[in-house]
Design a protein around this nucleic acid. Structure first.
Length: 463
RNA sequence: GUGGUUGUAGCUCAGUUGGUUAGAGCGCUUGAUUGUGGUUCAAGAGGUCGCCGGUUCGAACCCGGUCUUCCACCCCA
């Protein structure tokens, strides 16, 4: 019985055109990663559960895909645990492995395991899929690619500056103009929690603050109150809600607010230094913006925090993010190794480029020349020409059968082939071929003996 | 994980208070056109109406379940 095939929720098939576009993004990112001196690594699709669990908070743990043990795993669970019927107690005993949830934690594991072979500072990049058991939405999938670049073993703020430049370089090369790199500093957020007397509520405070531009001032205050932050504390933090304008202006306000917080002032100084240096160097198409309401996942970030927003005309979640984490490898037993990194959301960048029609026209051009097939002798001559063309890096093919000319032309049209070569009996007798431009409809005769260089310029303009 | 939403031809969608052979546009195949595609004209193929069950003389339509889609939360790329 034939059943209708399907794929799991939140996963996708990619057609040739889609793969071509994705590869365009990936190769652009890769090229810049390498220009900035990052080296590629890869890690397994799945890790030991204990490597991943507890690293992303309770919410994160819930979203980790767990892999059922092989063999008779049920019999290995003790009776007490089994009869408790509590998934949370049973799951760890029957799922010893789990799919990777992001690339940062596996990277931390990698650094710790290979610390003796690595030359620090280590700049690595990694482009691989990750899996999350989330509910899919626009731009949210259960399987998606992350493109990460991280630097470990370097404390200098120049790393942050370089990463901002890297964002700018990638998005510029993708043709995506007008991205906004939002920057904040975890120390500033800590300082704020400190001066409003809600140090123990740091996470609740920042999560609420992060929603400011989405739900508005009133609702943010409401959420803060419901989390146990006093009215008085919110009043002290009030300037944050109205913080606008230039970075220097905002920093001045922050300084007044945080003057009694050592950690807060440290954060401000870091922000200043990064802003000033980036200002000196300049950015091509992106803008670096200070955003004190930016929070992101606070689980491991300790310094700078970045998030990239698509141009304002597009409604889309962040297309990249990152930050400084001083002690990521600490959880795996390696102390005092500072890391800082950024991530590109391939799938969302794809949606943005698609929506703005920014993919180059030739990006999914899988064939540049199609030679029509008129029979054995003619096909042989065509194959000789095709070899020459391929030698010059031109994607060329022979139509595999001597089908109706009309059908062959239709095929060329469907596949968006810009040029068709016609070698029929007549052309062959004159040792010639006809080159037809499918866009303009023009065609001209060329000699089969000519070096392709004589008509190659045709392709440069149109193919 | 919570609340809602969607599913009919390859695609985008119509479809009467439940009633006989379920429609359109686009696409596809063939022909007009035995050496010229995109435009045009004609003909044709293609659907157990997401799946399972229930109500009914009768279900694309009503009810329950399930899967899927999209959306708002949660969280996040």
């Amino acid at each position: 019985m034939a059943q209708k095939p399907s794929i799991p929720k939140g996963t996708r098939d990619f057609s040739p055109a889609e793969v071509a576009k994705r590869n365009f993004i990936i190769s652009t990112i890769k090229e810049q990663f390498e220009l900035f001196g990052f080296q590629p690594i890869e890690t397994p699709s799945f890790e030991n559960s204990e490597t991943l669990l507890g690293k992303y908070g309770d919410e994160g743990d819930r979203l980790i895909f767990k892999i059922l043990n092989s063999g008779d795993f049920i019999s290995k669970v003790d009776d007490v645990t089994y009869s408790s019927k509590k998934s949370s107690s049973i799951a760890p005993k029957i799922t010893e492995k789990a799919l990777r949830y992001d690339l940062t934690v596996p990277f931390a594991r990698y650094v710790v395991m290979h610390q003796n072979e690595i030359d620090f500072p280590f700049k690595r990049y990694q482009i691989q899929p990750v899996w999350r058991a989330d509910r899919p939405q626009k731009g949210r999938f259960r399987e998606f690619y992350q493109c990460d670049a991280d630097i470990v073993g370097a404390n200098s703020l120049l790393q942050e500056v370089e990463l901002v430049q890297l964002y700018d370089a990638v998005f510029t090369n993708l043709g995506l103009v007008g991205t906004v790199i939002k920057m904040n500093n975890r120390k500033v957020l800590s300082g704020l929690a400190e001066v409003i007397g809600a140090k123990h509520l740091l996470v609740d405070f920042t999560v609420a603050l992060d929603k400011l531009d989405k739900i508005g001032e009133d609702k943010v205050k409401q959420e803060m109150l419901s989390k146990g932050i006093s009215e008085n504390a919110i009043a002290i933090a009030a300037p944050l809600f109205a913080m606008k304008g230039s970075a220097t202006n905002q920093l001045k306000q922050l300084e007044t607010l945080l003057q009694d917080s050592q950690v807060g002032m440290a954060g401000i100084n870091e922000l200043k230094e990064i802003l000033i240096t980036v200002g000196e160097l300049g950015l091509k198409t992106a803008t670096l913006q200070l955003d004190v309401t930016l929070a992101r996942g606070l689980n491991y970030y300790t310094g700078a925090i970045f998030e990239v927003a698509a141009p304002s005309s597009i409604k889309m979640g962040s297309i990249g993010g990152g930050g400084r984490y001083d002690d990521l490898t600490g959880i795996f037993g390696l102390k005092d190794v500072s890391g800082v990194g950024i991530s590109f959301g391939l799938d969302r960048i794809y949606l943005v480029l698609e929506e703005l029609h920014l993919f180059p026209k030739t990006v999914d051009q899988s064939l540049q020349v199609l030679c029509l097939n008129f029979g054995e002798k003619e096909a042989l001559a065509a194959l000789k020409l095709i070899s020459k063309l391929r030698g010059h890096g031109i994607k060329a093919n022979l139509y595999p059968a001597a089908a109706k000319v009309q059908k062959q032309f239709k095929y060329a049209d469907k596949r968006n082939v810009p040029f068709v070569v016609i070698i029929g009996a007549e052309e062959l007798s004159r040792n010639e071929f006809i080159l037809k431009d499918m866009v303009s409809g023009e065609q001209k005769s060329c000699s089969l003996d000519d070096e392709p260089s004589s008509f190659l310029n045709e392709f440069n303009g149109n193919a």
